[in-house]
């Protein structure tokens, strides 16, 4: 299984540069070679997580199919990040099961390091290794966890730096990079492991507004290539345009989920509507009216498009 994942990763990165959307996630395991549908990348059942007295997740069920992009939205403290961190066991669930590509990660017998190599994770605070160059950040885990040689690891690393548009920064240290560049290096670092799926934990929340677009463009590219993605985000326009499905969480529970158009564009639940109204534009009374103007194709070049995100970031910080 581990070897399959390794070769799969290498193939995937090599084939990524030019061609559009390769068939789904072609190849964690044999039988489901037929593209896309059905096969589950992540299955979460009855997930609960408590920190002492405080119950942060109160019974979550989600399935993410292979090649699907799912965005999780919701107010701060609703448990979104904890949910994400339970998928690769950075947090140990209190109860419930989490399966990633058929492997039950909540099983105490499972080799969690091996599972994690197939799950890319991108953090809000980037968490790049400050003592290593960009290239070093991308090669260290390939070498220490996958046992790749120096030459191979560097080749994969350079390919992924090119993928996020930072070829010329390979010998820069994180402190010499802007926030947006750091986050793109962090994405490339996760991609260098050849993951089957990617988790994004508020990847743009710590960025200055003008740097958000570059990171979102990279994520959009990944989605177009068919990467399975579970994204916790406050970028409503990203969720609406890129996500196949949007999940709205509040108070440790899933309040509403469905196609992005529906949850963001035409929410059914009062709590969802209230949240969206607050996030998108505190001034505009009608969310539905405000939305259409926010759909230009290029996020990075339209400041008005980043507007709602910026508002939310500001709010988050002041809290």
């Amino acid at each position: 299984m581990g070897e399959t994942a390794g070769t799969d990763g290498t193939d995937r990165t090599s084939g990524s540069s030019g061609t559009s959307r390769p068939t789904g996630a072609s190849g964690t395991s044999g039988p489901s070679a037929t593209s896309g549908g059905g096969a589950a990348a992540i299955e979460i059942e009855g997930l609960r997580k408590s920190f002492g007295e405080l119950e942060v997740l109160r019974g979550i069920d989600i399935t993410v199919r292979r090649g699907e992009v799912v965005c999780v939205i919701g107010p701060s403290g609703s448990g979104k990040s904890t949910l994400l961190r339970c998928v690769n066991l950075l947090e140990e669930p209190t109860s419930g099961t989490v399966r990633v590509a058929g492997t039950e990660v909540t099983d105490p017998e499972v080799d969690i390091d091996r599972v994690r190599r197939r799950i890319g994770m991108v953090f809000q605070a980037f968490n790049l290794f400050p003592h290593l160059t960009a290239l070093g950040n991308l090669t260290i885990a390939q070498r220490r966890a996958l046992g790749r040689g120096k030459a191979e690891a560097e080749e994969v690393a350079r390919r992924n730096l090119r993928r996020v548009g930072l070829t010329e920064k390979e010998s820069s240290y994180p402190a010499q990079l802007s926030g947006g560049q750091q986050q793109r290096v962090a994405i490339a670092r996760a991609l260098s492991m050849g993951p089957d799926l990617m988790l994004f934990d508020e990847p743009t929340s710590a960025l200055d507004p003008e740097l958000v677009g570059d990171v979102l463009a990279v994520m959009r590219g990944l989605a177009d290539e068919g990467m399975t993605m579970l994204v916790v985000t406050h970028e409503m326009s990203f969720a609406r345009e890129v996500a196949d499905r949007v999940v709205f969480m509040d108070d440790g529970l899933i309040v509403e989920e469905g196609p992005a158009e529906q949850v963001v564009g035409d929410p059914q639940q009062a709590r969802t509507r209230a949240f969206l109204a607050r996030v998108l534009d505190p001034a505009a009374a009608d969310v539905l009216e405000a939305e259409p103007s926010q759909e230009p194709t290029s996020l990075s070049e339209s400041p008005s498009d980043i507007e709602p995100g910026r508002g939310e970031v500001g709010k988050e910080r002041s809290r």
Binding site: M121, N127, A145
Partner: peptide, 14 residues
């Protein structure tokens, strides 16, 4: 910072 260990572990390092 704790995030450093988390990043390393989430990459599958022991």
């Amino acid at each position: 910072p704790k995030g450093q260990t988390e990043a390393a572990r989430s990459l599958g390092m022991s």
